[in-house]
Amino acid sequence: MVVVSLVVAIILIGLWVGSDSSLLPVQASLNAPLYDQLFRVLYSIGTILFLGVFGVLIYSLIRFRRRAGDVSDGAATEGNLPLEIVWTAIPAVVVLFVGLYSYNIYDRMGGMTSLGDHGGMHSMEAMTAMDQRPAGEVWGGIGTATGLTPATTVDVTAMQFAFIFSYPSSNIISGELHVPVGQPVELHMKANDVIHAFWVPQFRLKQDIIPGQPTVLAFTPTREGTYPIICAELCGPYHGGMRTSVVVHGQDAYEQWLKQNSPDPVAA
């Protein structure tokens, strides 16, 4: 039938549109492929719904337009309960599916990991030293999906209008974030003045850095290169200029960078 084939066509178009991920920036972390999977599903569903509504609307406007001089009324249909139940049920099912699916994605990203009790205990102690809140209460964005102890931990301080990265294991202090590829990294973030946010589009990750709330964010970079770090929370006049880069090195290059930048113990 015409209707069925139209519906099928719309669904196919939706799936086809959704399968194209050239809309997104490159994938540079373990999160990114998961994110893009969700994106494609949402994009497909969205396209199907939109085309459906749009199609019916345009069809009605053409098919049922009033001809010149016509003063008659349409049919006096006031409702149709079965039909209305159908179009309550369809969105309910879609929405339930989307909710559960995105929960699943979020879990695989590490979002459901309770941050109070994972990760190396040593890093927890390091945190409490600097924080104004009782031990164990760390707010978090996302933990490591793998649950592994992070290879690299970096302390991040956000202030108007810069990020400062310090490497507790080697005393490096840097305005850029350098991380090795393929290993979990854990950021211990705090803000000095107002709220900032740490965002790397290629990692599909964002986390507010809220003064008074030490926050943990973990990720695993998967692709070497230099990506922007963008402050995404309005933090004052130079908010737009508060950006730096994250450099993802190969393992050797990372060691190299560490060695070159470690402060000389004698000179320091």
């Binding site: 994110y35 969700l38 969205g46 979020y106 589009p201 599909r204 995404a232």
Partner: peptide
């Protein structure tokens, strides 16, 4: 889409 946490953490703000 924004209501989905994992989607929103990328595009929020």
């Amino acid at each position: 889409a924004l209501a989905q946490v994992p989607f929103d953490i990328h595009v929020h703000d």
